[in-house]
Amino acid sequence: MFELNAQSIAFIVFALFSLGGALGVVTTRNLIHATLYLILSLFGAAGFFVLLSAPFMAAVQVLVYIGAIAILIVFAVMLTRSMTRLSDIYNSQWLLSAIVAGLLFVLLLVGVILPVWGVNGTQAGREVSSIVTTTVDLGKALVDQNQYVLPFEVASLLLTAAMIGAIVVARDDKE
């Protein structure tokens, strides 16, 4: 079922990147280091997209998430100088949160993922088809009037509104 080849080794490496980076994000005291861990985790996800033969998604992941959002977060950390004066990084309900998150993970894994898509699950044995759609198909689907052109335009509108809103909210009123 799980033979050790180049693909599975790459999967293990990217899984370690994703999970280790995520753990670093929630446990590191220094927020700049947390952002670097976030970049590691996002890079692991980009590797997953390459493994799943979605190269456009991998490129967008690197450009938008690592290139824009992570840098934006670094700017916010610097502007708020928030990394120096925090004595407690967790609030009073952190133990409850940890239990809830752990239970959620166990529930997802034992209750949904393994019974349905696991080795003996009801949907098991679903193999990757040899047909690979390309970025051209995605581009055509996004502007096809029978598929996703309306959500695409609404997404553009949302981005414009978010940009204007961010400028208005972050502007200093005294100037």
Binding site: S18, L19, A22, V25, Q93, W94, S97, A101
Partner: peptide, 14 residues
């Protein structure tokens, strides 16, 4: 796993 770690971060960080 990544989702639950993120949820823990959202619920517990200050």
């Amino acid at each position: 796993g990544v989702f639950c770690i993120g949820a823990y971060g959202v619920l517990s960080r200050r």
